[in-house]
Simulated scan of single mutants.
Amino acid sequence: MIQDLKVTEASCAHVSTNDTVAEFAGATKRFGAILAADRIDLSIRRGEFLSFLGPSGCGKTTALRMLAGFDSPTEGAVLIDGQDVSAVPAHLRPVNMVFQHYALFPHMTVAQNVGYGLRQRRPRLSKSEIAQKTDKALATVRLAEFGTRRIWELSGGQQQRVALARAIINEPQILLLDEPMAALDAKLRGEMQRELLELQRSLNITFVLVTHDQEEALSMSDRICIMAKGRIMQVGSPQDLYDRPRCRYVADFVGKANIVTGQIDGRHGGTAQAILGNGATVILRDLPGDSRHTVEIAVRPEALSVAAQNLPLTEGTAALPARVTHRTFLGDRIEYLLTVEGIGQLQVNAPRQAGGALGEHMVGSLVHVLWPEGTGLVLADDS
């Protein structure tokens, strides 16, 4: 079922337009018996920030390397500006790459590292032109006073900026980023994410990021490509992927989701009525065209709420009797883990300002999980 949905997303992948800077057209990559990328169809829009997101071994880095020119597709093609570049070597493509460990030259100064690519150009640029472009690139990443320093004299964040300056100095059409913030601590990673996004907007060139960090992808990307086992599972904006995951894999991977099984008991307009394992009836957003009777349903923890069992209910809201198993205070919210007979465990995230007294709903309390009408989404099969 996901394969059909992927074709819809990629239906324009074989037709280059002014808005398309690069394309994967049925790109497949095998390493012996290992299928690393499986018929990838994807159009990358000019000037967008696109992220490939998925766990280790899902094919995201293979896709990036095919776009960079470090690997050639076994089948299919990679196109840039409508031209098949599958056999074009990396140094002849209008792309540059920032590696996870930056690959800076320790024997060179910062300025020498940044200007390295320009010194390899043929015909040669003049020393003054290289110096001018190097100064401009360093100023862009806010390292204008660091040109004479050695790499080991820089912090991790500063080294990342040097790698970025070296990549943008050649004015690539596409900048590729292979988990460039994986080595940074959490606080510095957040700062660099904001700086990288500001840099992309100021340069107005296409950024393609590979990451396994969902928060990083959600906070930075115009679109995210979710991958698993070499295949594209879903492509969309961060909000689309969070609000309308198409399958269990995407719902589970992007954010947190409660996934329960239900029986479809009727449809009306854009909603479906489902009976859960404990006999409760909930009203869901429907999946158009889905005719299954037994379905998997995803509902986000913040879409549910916890209430005392004697609280009056809003019409259309289902109340599921539950017991509080765990309660975690996280400052801005309280995370509840609740056991619901016939369903299992559900997580509910309650905003602190909406929760009333912090002493409510302690571990062991008998409560109701409130499931509002129209909450929850029927999922397609992962296959």
Rank of each mutant, 00 (worst) to 15 (best):
Thr339Phe: 13
Leu311Ser: 15
Glu191Lys: 07
Gly277Pro: 12
Ser237Arg: 04
Asp38Thr: 13
Thr148Leu: 04
Leu118His: 05
Ala37Arg: 13
Ala251Arg: 03
Gly355Ala: 13
Gln159Pro: 07
Phe105Gln: 04
Asp81Phe: 02
Ile224Phe: 05
Tyr249Asp: 06
Val95Gln: 06
Arg300Tyr: 06
Asp222His: 11
Glu215Asn: 04
Gly57Cys: 03
Leu313Gly: 11
Leu138Val: 02
Thr317Met: 11
Met97Pro: 00
Tyr116Trp: 07
Asp381Cys: 04
Leu337Lys: 12
Ser383Gly: 12
Leu5Tyr: 12
Phe105Ser: 11
Ala68Thr: 06
Glu373Ser: 15
Gly59Val: 05
Leu304Thr: 07
Glu315Asp: 14
Val162His: 12
Val299Met: 10
Pro89Cys: 05
Asp381Pro: 01
Pro351Lys: 02
Gly364Arg: 14
Tyr102His: 14
Arg194Val: 07
Gln353Val: 14
Thr20Ala: 10
Arg161Ile: 13
Val340Phe: 01
Thr62Glu: 05
Ala217Thr: 05
Ala357Ile: 00
Arg323Ser: 10
Gln263Leu: 13
Ala308Lys: 00
Phe24Leu: 01
Ala36Gln: 03
Arg119Trp: 03
Met362Thr: 05
Arg39Tyr: 01
Cys225Trp: 03
Leu197Val: 15
Asp332Asn: 11
Asn96Gly: 00
Gly26Phe: 09
Gly230Leu: 06
Lys136Ile: 11
Leu320Glu: 11
Gly269Ala: 15
Ala144Met: 00
Asn204Pro: 00
His368Asp: 15
Asn349Lys: 12
Glu9Val: 08
Tyr249Asn: 00
Ala33Trp: 01
Ala25Leu: 05
Val260Cys: 04
Lys229Glu: 15
Asn258Lys: 05
Leu188Asp: 00
Asp382Phe: 10
Thr375Ile: 13
Pro123Arg: 00
Ile44His: 05
Leu209Gln: 10
Leu164Val: 08
Gly47Cys: 08
Tyr249Arg: 00
Gln158Tyr: 14
Phe329Pro: 10
Ile283Arg: 12
Arg45Ser: 14
Val295Cys: 08
Ile264Ser: 15
Val378Gly: 10
His361Asp: 02
Gln345Ile: 02
Glu215Leu: 08
Ala63Cys: 15
Ile259Gly: 08
Gly59Thr: 06
Tyr102Ile: 07
Ile232Cys: 14
Glu48Ser: 09
Asp332Thr: 14
Cys12Trp: 04
Val367Glu: 00
